[in-house]
Design a protein around this nucleic acid. Structure first.
Length: 397
RNA sequence: GGGUAGGUGGCGGAGCAGUCAAACGCAUCAGACUGUAAAUCUGACGCCUUCGGGCUACGGGGGUGCAAAUCCCUCCCUACCCA
């Protein structure tokens, strides 16, 4: 396949949703004009789900592939054993081989919505990392200063706090860096949290292969609460979230993130600039933009039709305050039940104590009528709808 | 090998014999408000209850005492320092 060396296209790939290119963007641009480059993105299979944050790198990888470059997705079956200490306040717990395998399986499904595997190769770094002998490990390690490895913020912060840093964690950048050496690439892409690891790889490749590698960093996207999106923070929009869930979560992001999130869609960059401007000048209602945004994102992962449905559903529930179209149904044997027991049986509450609190706080509605008497006996009738708060429903079936 | 400091609710972190289901912060949930599941404000936040209370909890086990998260013994775990 011939490469596309249209300067405008190249510029867009190196510009959109990119934090920085090291050491120089211009030289990478020139290289990309001249010849097909080899690049990769590495991800460790530490969790079974992927969130919207992961898609930044994946999409970028695809963009390079679309230009005709050799794009490789490395799944960190080897590096996962060491555990990446970046952004980690404590050592990562050890993951089993089975979990790793499962994660990879579910990943392939999730990434298929973004990646075109006819253009992108997958490689597993365990294939070479796990085969390294001690002699080779020592050889690799002799290229990088230990002081450099220790000086990382993350480690220094832990040391200051009185925590420890495990030796295997300091090994991580070396292992990740060795991927660059094995593949002998022209470019590695990754999140800004990976700068350190990627630069170590650059140094290793320079020393061991006498080859320059470019490093392209991608911004980390913020989650629904405005903090960095991560599993532990519970602020993620997961790729396998249902259309309705995804739609709702996007509607809940802070207004300031709207433009940034649009970059996660296929929206033309010009339009996004306009959105930014409109938001600044308060020309459009942020809510309307969010609806458009939510629709765009959901359409990517669930298809346009489902996205339309999710949009209608959202508007009917939150704008018109109607009941959702799908409500989980529960069969109840009893003819009459105390309201608290009913809430527990329909999984709306995990304990009677909690149910009681909710009733007292006026958070419970039955058939859209507020119920604030926790001693009330409810007659069980098919079709009755119990609601807690704004978004938890159950129906008697 | 020696020394020191620790292990408390989902997390961080007070408490150091009674008034402790355990301050405070974060997270979570409900209410008000709103364009939103945003922001802000209010409240709740172990389980069971015949709404009076009851039960289980502060690393594990054992003990002292009317009474223990708090004292003693022992075991396990963690961190730091010295060698």
């Amino acid at each position: 396949m011939k490469i596309n060396n249209n300067p405008k296209k190249i510029e867009e790939v190196l510009e959109r949703m990119v934090d920085q290119v090291l050491p120089y963007k211009e030289s990478l641009k020139n290289l990309m004009k001249k010849r097909k480059i080899k690049l990769y993105l590495g991800v460790d299979p530490t969790s079974s789900k992927l969130h919207l944050g992961h898609t930044i790198g994946l999409r970028k990888l695809q963009e390079f592939a679309d230009l005709g470059h050799e794009a490789i997705l490395i799944i960190g079956t080897g590096t996962v054993l060491a555990g990446d200490p970046s952004l980690r306040d404590s050592a990562r717990s050890i993951i089993t081989q089975k979990e790793v395998e499962n994660n990879i399986k579910t990943w392939k499904k999730q990434t298929a919505k973004i990646l075109d595997f006819s253009k992108i190769k997958i490689k597993y770094n365990g294939d070479w990392l796990l085969k390294l002998g001690l002699k080779e490990v020592i050889d690799i390690a002799s290229n990088i200063s230990a002081i450099k490895l220790f000086q990382r913020d993350m480690f220094q912060r832990r040391i200051k706090r009185g925590d420890t840093v495990w030796t295997h964690e300091t090994l991580y950048p070396l292992l990740q860096g060795y991927d660059s050496v094995v593949l002998n690439v022209d470019l590695e892409i990754g999140g800004t949290d990976q700068v350190f690891n990627m630069l170590i790889g650059r140094e290793l490749q320079q020393k061991m292969k006498k080859k320059e590698k470019f490093v392209l960093t991608l911004p980390l996207i913020l989650g629904v609460d405005g903090k960095t999106m991560s599993k532990t923070s519970g602020n993620c929009i997961w790729l396998d979230d249902s259309a309705d869930q995804m739609f709702g979560k996007i509607m809940s992001i802070p207004d300031e993130l709207i433009a940034e999130y649009f970059l996660l869609t296929n929206y033309p960059i010009k339009e996004i600039e306009k959105i930014k401007k409109d938001l600044k000048e308060k020309k459009t209602n942020p809510r309307d933009l969010k609806i458009k945004l939510a629709e765009e994102v959901v359409a990517i992962y669930h298809g346009q039709k489902t996205a339309d449905k999710a949009k209608k559903e959202f508007e009917s529930i939150f704008k018109e305050k109607k009941l959702p179209t799908k409500i989980p149904e529960f069969k109840i044997k009893e003819k009459k039940l105390n309201i608290l027991d009913l809430m527990v049986k329909t999984n709306l509450s995990s304990s009677k104590a909690e149910a009681k609190r909710l009733v007292i706080q006026k958070g419970v509605k039955i058939d859209s009528k507020l119920e604030d008497d926790w001693k009330k006996i409810i007659e069980i009738k098919k079709g009755k709808v119990i609601q807690i708060g704004k978004r938890k429903f159950a129906k008697i079936g």
